[in-house]
Simulated assay, not measured.
Amino acid sequence: MVKKDNIYASPLPKVKDFVFDESVVDVFSDMIERSVPGYQTIISTIGHLAKEHAQADSNIYDLGCSLGAATLAMRRNIDVKNCKIIAVDYSQAMAQRCEKNLASFKSNIETQVLCDDALKIKIENASFVVLNFTLQFIQPEDRQQLINQIYAGLKPGGILILSEKLRFEQPSVQSVIDELHLDFKRAHGYSELEISQKRSAIENVMRTDTLNIHYARLKTAGFKQYNQWYQCFNFTSMMAIK
């Protein structure tokens, strides 16, 4: 049974910076469903895209795999030979839970779970790479390096899926879309206290970029073909093809 996210339901004497520790891991499935509109659409589409574009004898990377939702979707759908999925998460609690979740489902696709920094992972012989709400938690000055490493390690025709929360260049647009997202969270049972405390916890940890910044980064890395394939409120997913 999915545990309900009530981490911020009671007043805290001091709101600490958000970390992906055991307490978050325990409620993460509920947290993400109630916080990220369209999350399941993104996950299922990642599975479909992996089925269509994963190449035989190649590596698939899920960088920032959390509980393994994208990895599971890809394993269920990929049907070419000799693919290996490498799932990576910086949080030991997340990596351990991901490994446990993956072990619950049989698959013929070799899968390796690593607790490591995505920046330290050598991307090689890759036909499909997923950054699903991961880049926004990496220091801004390191983001270009990671996109460069992914581009360098992709095979011709390889695809990067990049999902992120966006910020907007126009303050009035930012305000309207922020309110839409807050209404989404209220509709899913979060109180004003929970919303406020979570915002305080995450504001120094998750630093969002505009769509144009993402596009500029992809272009700098060498990608010539890239675009959004999904957006709901301030959440988007892009694909970039080498």
Rank of each mutant, 00 (worst) to 15 (best):
K3V: 05
D5L: 02
Y8G: 04
A9Q: 10
S10M: 09
P11V: 05
P11Q: 04
L12K: 12
D17K: 09
D17E: 13
F20A: 02
F20D: 10
F20I: 03
D21P: 08
E22R: 08
S23H: 05
V25C: 08
S29T: 12
D30H: 09
D30Q: 02
E33V: 13
R34L: 05
V36N: 08
P37N: 05
P37K: 08
Y39D: 07
Q40Y: 06
Q40I: 04
T41N: 13
T41W: 11
A50Q: 09
A50L: 00
K51A: 12
E52N: 07
A56K: 03
N59R: 11
Y61S: 09
D62R: 02
L63Y: 02
S66W: 09
A69F: 11
A70R: 11
L72E: 01
A73C: 01
M74I: 00
R75V: 01
R75Q: 14
R76D: 10
I78M: 06
K81H: 08
N82A: 06
C83D: 00
K84F: 08
I86S: 03
I86P: 06
A87K: 02
M94P: 13
A95C: 04
R97S: 12
E99Q: 14
K100I: 12
K100M: 12
F105R: 15
K106N: 13
S107I: 00
E110D: 14
T111W: 02
Q112D: 14
V113H: 08
V113Q: 08
K122E: 12
K122C: 13
I123D: 01
I123L: 07
N125S: 03
S127I: 01
V129Q: 04
V130T: 04
N132M: 09
L135C: 03
Q136F: 00
I138W: 05
R143S: 04
Q144K: 01
Q144H: 03
Q144E: 06
Q145W: 01
I147S: 00
N148K: 14
Q149A: 09
I150P: 02
G153R: 05
K155R: 12
P156K: 07
P156S: 05
G157C: 07
G158Q: 04
L166G: 10
L166C: 12
R167Y: 06
F168Y: 14
E169G: 07
P171E: 14
V173P: 03
S175E: 15
V176K: 11
I177Y: 09
D178G: 11
L182T: 13
A187I: 06
H188N: 12
G189H: 09
S191L: 03
E192W: 00
S196H: 12
S196T: 04
Q197N: 07
K198S: 09
N204V: 00
N204K: 13
N204S: 11
V205W: 11
R207N: 14
D209K: 15
I213Y: 10
Y215C: 14
A216K: 15
T220R: 15
K224C: 04
Q225V: 00
Y226P: 06
N227C: 10
Q228S: 15
N234G: 07
N234V: 03
F235C: 05
